[in-house]
């Protein structure tokens, strides 16, 4: 037996966020009802964040017997065949079993490896990795950087471990928040009001409309006039869609007071350079994919403005956009400081 030692590739830090960072999330594949925290994690985390960077590999001219030894000693079921960072194939336990069956153990690995490979890119969101695990039966995928160099390997276990860790961090944060709220009684308020907030995830069009729908239900429960409730729901939906397709994510907040309902949409970037232009009917920066779904017609802001009793928009390029729509529940003057429409 040869004393061949496997090559250990040290994965490089890649800088290819842009590869697929803007790829739409297929929420269906992930379960359309996933919580926002999970959806955001799946989008925020990239394959490179959870993959194993130390990848055992073997060159093309090593034998199946050498591959078998590496697999056995390292308790792994698949081994990339690579040279100088270039990936040529994968040799798996199944190939070794076939080799034993047919007496091929002294053949070179390139004769029996799988060379038609499904790979992931380091910059892909984790949601992609999960979809790949769902669509293919492979237990692991090699990971390439934008220069097609092998930089890591990712298994379902890696993804689960990372997600569980991050979820526990998020849950701890939520627990702390709840504890704070319990510890501090709410300040006395002069008016009765109700406040609720919804997170809106960038490009999650499947989830878009959830907040607006809940808003409509809540308004119905609170016996808000049907036509006012409809106007509020229309504005909420338009603003929710805007956050979803134009920003990096944000929140939609509804506050119901005695006299008015206020919907506020605040997002994280990229901001609006020319607010007057953006508020005109038919002006939009949406891409073709969004337009093909019937959105991005440039009517969102103008629709919201038209249905609201008070409309205000603030934005800082590169930072945020905040849109406030208020609706009178009783016949009152519009609040000062904005444009009544």
């Amino acid at each position: 037996m040869s004393d061949y030692s496997p090559t250990i590739l040290q994965g490089q830090q890649t800088n290819d966020d842009e590869i697929l960072a803007k790829t739409p999330l297929d929420a269906k594949a992930l379960g359309g009802d996933s919580s926002v925290v999970i959806m955001e994690l799946l989008q925020r985390f990239k394959v490179r964040d959870v993959m194993k960077r130390q990848v055992l590999s073997i060159p093309r001219k090593a034998t199946l017997r050498e591959a078998q030894r590496i697999l056995r000693e390292n308790h792994i079921s698949g081994l990339p065949v690579s040279e100088d960072g270039r990936l040529y194939g994968i040799i798996s336990v199944n190939d070794i079993i076939n080799g034993l069956d047919h007496g091929w153990m002294d053949d070179t690995v390139d004769m029996h490896m799988a060379s038609s490979l499904v790979v992931l890119e380091a910059g892909m969101p984790i949601s992609f990795a999960l979809r790949y695990f769902n669509n293919y039966t492979y237990g692991r995928f090699p990971v390439l950087d934008s220069n097609r160099q092998l930089v890591g390997i990712i298994s379902q276990r890696d993804v689960m471990r990372a997600l569980l860790y991050e979820l526990s961090v998020e849950i701890r944060k939520l627990e702390r928040k709840t504890a704070d709220k319990v510890a501090q009684p709410a300040p006395p308020s002069e008016t009765h009001f109700f406040r609720r907030e919804w997170a809106v995830v960038h490009n999650d069009l499947t989830g878009a409309g959830r907040a607006a729908n809940e808003i409509k239900q809540l308004l119905r429960e609170k016996k808000v006039d049907r036509s006012v409730a409809r106007r509020i729901a229309v504005a909420a939906y338009e603003l929710e869609i805007n956050i979803c397709i134009h920003s990096h994510g944000g929140v939609l907040v509804m506050v119901i007071s005695d006299n008015a309902v206020t919907i506020t949409a605040k997002d994280r970037g990229p901001g609006i350079p020319d607010i007057e232009w953006a508020c005109r009917d038919g002006t939009s920066t949406a891409n073709d994919w969004i337009r093909s779904l019937g959105f991005g017609a440039g009517m969102g802001l103008s629709n919201s403005k038209r249905v609201a009793d008070f409309f205000e928009i603030e934005s800082e390029v590169g930072k945020f956009t905040k849109v406030t729509c208020a609706f009178n529940l009783k016949k009152l003057e519009a609040p000062a400081g904005g444009t009544a429409s």
């Binding site: 729908n213 409509k216 409809r230």
Partner: peptide
């Protein structure tokens, strides 16, 4: 309200719009 919407938009968001209007 209470209208027929005639469209080619065969996706979930169309249902959201129908519900809202």
């Amino acid at each position: 309200e209470d209208c027929v919407l005639v469209t080619i938009q065969n996706h979930l968001n169309t249902i959201a719009v129908c519900t809202l209007v």
